[in-house]
């Protein structure tokens, strides 16, 4: 087992553990912090796949901007002292069972796929390749994908106007 595989499994364990902790934390602030940990470990996966631009953007945009927005809202509402009302235990059990069955189906699809491609496995190249570098991404983004990029600015403008209109007092 090479060093890449060891790092991969450690990152997998970190990702899944912190994702589960997002659910089971009682305090919403702790949930936000565990979600930040999840984003950092996903960024670690991106770095392993040599997608360096996306790794940095994931940290800056998700773990930085979006999570700070969540923290602001939680502190604005002063939710961190209040405990959530008890949900019906049967409803929780039903949610876990239906999510687990979804996971079961998807995992069995993956197992069938990996048995079918046992002879010629599809490999995601780690620690190599140059498509994740900012130079190549920028060139494609500003030539081939220039129109969607400009549409994103319109989307942001409408989101900003929408947030102001919704958040305004009457």
């Amino acid at each position: 087992m090479g060093i890449t595989a060891i790092v991969f499994w450690i990152l997998c364990a970190l990702t899944l553990f912190s994702a589960i902790m997002v659910l089971v934390s009682k305090n919403p602030v702790h949930s936000v912090l565990w979600l930040v940990a999840t984003f950092f470990s996903i960024s670690g996966h991106y770095i392993m796949l040599n997608a360096q631009f996306l790794a940095i953007v994931n940290i800056i945009v998700y773990a930085g901007a979006i999570m700070v927005l969540f923290l602001f809202v939680i502190m604005l509402m002063n939710l961190n002292t209040r405990t959530e009302l008890k949900k019906n235990l049967w409803m929780k059990l039903a949610g876990v069972i239906s999510g687990g069955m979804l996971l079961w189906i998807l995992i069995s699809v993956v197992r069938t796929y990996s048995e079918q491609t046992k002879v010629h496995p599809v490999i995601a190249a780690t620690n190599t390749g140059s498509i994740g570098l900012i130079k190549n991404l920028g060139q494609v983004l500003f030539t081939q994908y220039a129109l969607p990029f400009e549409l994103c600015s319109v989307l942001f403008l409408s989101a900003m106007v929408g947030a102001v209109v919704i958040g305004k007092k009457n």
């Binding site: 994702a19 949900k87 409803m91 999510g99 990996s114 995601a124």
Partner: peptide, 26 residues
């Protein structure tokens, strides 16, 4: 890394998200 490891990780993360949407009230 074979791609199925990444698929398995991603579907597990997705299922955790689905369970969270179903069981949390906040």
């Amino acid at each position: 890394m074979p791609i199925q490891y990444y698929i398995a990780l991603a579907v597990t993360l997705f299922s955790i998200g689905v369970v969270g949407v179903l069981i949390r009230r906040n």
